[in-house]
């Protein structure tokens, strides 16, 4: 196993940041840790990168214990913390050179690993990192984390605050890296990114809600979800919440995702009910669950 976490718990003063977390990541896997801010993702990353010590439980990374063998882990993993953590006043090239030197290597030595990413930022190599756009910074940070050819790569919310185009490119890069035998643990608050991982763990309030492939997580959603829309969104939501048979009512873009707690639910009844509540243009259609639906159902 590339990463193995067994019964890890961690508390700060009053707050329980992590409660009894266990999971394993196979070599070469792209594993996603999906959860909102404050779910405990960063704490878990810091424990695995040897920056924090857990109160309970144990963990190994690349076969090394995170407490006893912390020095070995530090030279064999790459870590990209949540905040933009490069030297703003150093140029792209100087940043990369610096991180290469402190890991005892050179850019040339591992160039083929970062080549795909580096060519995109190379035109700006003499620009100070602080003057790069969000997407560029993120690419540079990834290069810096990869420069010593780590076995395991930890990416803590790499796509937060980055626009959709850069996000897409970033995930494409991760997919390519995976083919070079690097195990990747990535965290994100965006549920739509979950589908891009091999396996994911849904995490909230320091607890893991479920671990599986994104496909089976959605497949296991217990109910039929209906897309509902009408002329007035707010009235629609209030009416649905007042409907005695409702199981869940969540606005979902231009629709409301509705589930009913009856097995023999007939959408026509609902249309009738909604129209009796002065709503018009009512539409109801079946739809499939998303990771977000599952997350909300589990967190409920």
């Amino acid at each position: 196993m590339s990463i193995s976490v067994t019964h890890i718990s961690k508390s700060y003063k009053k707050v329980k940041a992590l409660q009894d977390i266990s999971f394993e990541v196979k070599p070469g896997e792209l594993f996603g840790l999906i959860g909102p801010d404050g779910a405990g993702k960063t704490t878990l990353f810091r424990i695995l990168t040897t920056l924090l010590i857990a109160n309970e439980g144990s963990a190994t990374v690349a076969g090394f214990d995170v407490v006893a063998d912390y020095k070995k882990i530090r030279s064999s993993v790459g870590y990209m913390p949540g905040k933009f953590s490069l030297y703003q006043d150093l140029t792209v090239e100087e940043n990369l050179n610096f991180f290469a030197t402190i890991f005892g290597t050179t850019i040339e030595e591992n160039y083929d690993l970062i080549k795909d990413i580096f060519v995109q930022i190379e035109p700006f190599k003499n620009r100070r990192a602080g003057k790069l756009s969000g997407g560029m910074k993120q690419k540079l940070a990834l290069c810096c984390a990869l420069i010593h050819k780590p076995k395991v790569l930890f990416l803590d919310e790499p796509t937060t605050g980055v626009d959709p185009v850069s996000r897409k490119e970033f995930w494409d890069m991760l997919k390519r890296l995976q083919q070079k035998d690097i195990t990747i643990l990535v965290s994100t608050p965006y549920m739509d990114e979950a589908a891009l991982c091999d396996r994911i763990a849904l995490i909230q309030h320091g607890k893991i809600l479920e671990i599986d492939t994104p496909q089976s997580i959605v497949k296991h959603y217990p109910k039929q979800i209906y897309n509902v829309r009408a002329n007035n969104m707010y009235q629609l939501i209030t009416s649905l919440n007042d409907y005695e048979h409702h199981h869940s009512v969540y606005p979902f873009g231009e629709y409301v995702h509705y589930t009913d707690n009856r097995t023999d639910f007939n959408p026509k009844d609902l249309i009738q009910y909604l129209e009796s509540n002065n709503l018009s243009e009512v539409e109801i259609a079946k739809t499939v669950a998303t990771i977000e639906d599952t997350f909300m159902e589990l967190a409920k």
């Binding site: 810091r46 990168t49 020095k71």
Partner: peptide, 8 residues
């Protein structure tokens, strides 16, 4: 954080 997670 990065300096700590390095062999320095």
């Amino acid at each position: 954080e990065i300096l700590l997670v390095s062999p320095l």
